[in-house]
């Protein structure tokens, strides 16, 4: 007996994933461009408590660089702390 085939889903098609990715990148570009409006005082007036915080691009730059730093930092951390899954389960272990 043949098992019923699963319906093909939108995300199963890599082209659709690429399309979503491109749209997301474009949305990011639009959001980054909002800084210009704030700078010029159109649409909204941008206020900042710190000098750097008021610089255009500070927040999105911090978001991007922050994640890259975090992930690369974590990869380095793996070199020191990663152990096999059964590390604590060896015979004769105290727990």
């Amino acid at each position: 007996m043949e098992t019923p085939r699963e319906p093909k889903r939108y995300l199963d098609n890599p082209e659709n994933v690429t399309r979503l990715w491109r749209r997301f990148v474009m949305a990011c570009a639009v959001v980054a461009a909002l800084d210009l409006f704030g700078l010029l005082g159109i649409v909204y007036h941008r206020h900042a408590s710190l000098f750097v915080e008021g610089l255009p691009g500070f927040y999105w730059g911090w978001g991007f660089v922050g994640i890259v730093f975090l992930v690369f930092g974590a990869i380095q951390l793996r070199r020191f702390v990663m152990r096999p899954e059964n590390y604590y389960e060896r015979p004769g272990d105290a727990d």
């Binding site: 959001v31 915080e53 978001g63």
Partner: peptide
């Protein structure tokens, strides 16, 4: 706006 920028670019990364 700043929060959306922060998070979207984090997700982008």
């Amino acid at each position: 706006v700043t929060q959306v920028q922060l998070l979207m670019f984090g997700a982008l990364a």
